[in-house]
Amino acid sequence: MLMTKDDIFGKVSEVLEEALGCDEDEITPGASLVADLDAESIDFLDIVFRLEKTFGTTEKPFKIDQGELFPENVMDNAEWVQDGKFTDAGMDMLRERMPHVDFSVFDADREVVRVGDLITVQSLVEFVSRKLEG
């Protein structure tokens, strides 16, 4: 069964309502999980678990590997991060590893402390959509 982006958005919204205890009307495509929906680091593990359960079936499991939604251990790499900002190489790495994310706004300041803002509701929908398409 092919799911439309609207179907995926609906299911992602349900996952976020349960994992973050937020209201349906707070969940807009542009809402950042960290900045707008108050997600903490442990919530991402919860969200990953719930996405796997929601979109996986016995025939076709939906397994999200650690670091797949958001790359790990990037901050300590001097090639990617200098003076608290992502370098050109760092941005290339992020784009390659996070094709589900829209970097158009982030690219202007590239500050590491704001990297959490990159994960929006829409980026989760994109992530799930790309994975379901295989």
């Binding site: 680091s41 442990i42 593990l45 919860d46 678990f49 650690q66 790990e72 251990n73 901050m75 300590d76």
Partner: peptide, 12 residues
């Protein structure tokens, strides 16, 4: 409940 294996999650 949800549990974390903290050695696996708190990178660094």
């Amino acid at each position: 409940l949800m549990f974390s294996h903290i050695d696996q999650n708190m990178a660094g």
